[in-house]
Design a protein around this nucleic acid. Structure first.
Lengths: 171, 171
DNA sequence: GCGATACTCCTGACACTGTTCGGAAAACTG
DNA sequence: CAGTTTTCCGAACAGTGTCAGGAGTATCGC
């Protein structure tokens, strides 16, 4: 339902109708509507974490960065609702529970560790990297959903970033 | 009210109370709640446009890009609610009216024109630029609101971007 | 197999939201 | 002063998330 109608359009009454229940009965399984979001938030982060772990990172920095960037932007582009839930504050009243947030932190750490393994260790470089990749993702979703206008820029972006932090122009 | 409590927390009843009115009376001035958002959306874009026009752009590409980036990120950082309203879809049910959207397009064109004036004319370069600057803005707001963790990266980012599109390392 | 316990679900209701209708004042205009 | 327009409100509607209390049902210990 969230994927089809958007994160914010989720209604507990509609959800209950879909599973042939009265709205109040959902409270047996979820403490609140935010708990539903929290579940989706946790699931999304687990999925992203799994993909990061499945990724076998090249020793070469540039191919590695390309792979990571593609992984992330694809993850964002394939499910707008999920991306909004995980990374934008589309539901302002929602804040993840400590348990779910812990998974998000794990994702963050994993990404950070991968980048460190290819030689990217400075805080500012990492921040610049996340800004760049998240910028590409959100612009892709905002200005060309379903298309590839910004996805096509990924390799170019990685080249730019690599030139800057590693120097040289090869690969 | 929006600035204090967030875009989404705006309630017409609370707004009415604040101006000593009954909620229904607001409908004399605004056709709907979205019309209120639309007003804020238009105002924000007008403000941003004004700042762009006030900016006297250097002939040198790099200082010009630095100025633009600082302008935009500052604009974002100084009012989170406004930024969300203009650039993120925090209010999913809100869509700007054609008149207000026209102002947003004007802002976009102005930015595009400025970049063209310093030699940046390729579509992909412009898209990469917007991705980079919007990425810095949203990361700043999301991860360090009120701080300057990503603002400090602007000059560095512009250097990286300039190296890439213009080549060379000076300035 | 039976009694106690835990779980599942629903009825009813509360407080809140944005919004529409119809009418009453108030302000402005000729 | 008469007529028209603007401003405002009372009542009400459909929708939301959520809580309290009570049935019915499954599960567990003996």
């Amino acid at each position: 339902m969230v994927r089809v109608n958007g994160v914010n359009a989720l209604s507990l009454r509609a959800l209950a109708r879909a599973v042939d229940m009265e709205p109040q009965s959902l409270y047996t399984y979820f403490a609140s509507k935010n708990a539903v979001y929290d579940q989706l938030f946790a699931d999304g982060n687990r999925e992203l974490l799994a993909r990061f772990e499945r990724l076998d990172v090249s020793d070469e920095p540039r191919p590695a960065l390309r792979a990571i960037a593609h992984l992330f932007v694809s993850f964002a582009a394939e499910d707008q609702a999920r991306y909004e839930l995980l990374f934008l504050r589309t539901i302002p009243e929602f804040e993840p529970s400590p348990e779910s947030y812990a998974i998000a932190v794990e994702v963050f750490s994993k990404g950070r560790a991968i980048l460190a393994s290819v030689g990217l260790r400075r805080d500012e470089d990492f921040d610049l990297w996340t800004a760049l990749v998240s910028g590409l993702s959100s612009q892709q979703l905002a200005n060309d959903p379903g298309g590839d206008r910004y996805i096509k820029l990924i390799d170019n972006s990685v080249a730019m970033f690599s030139e800057h932090v590693f120097g040289g122009r090869d690969s």
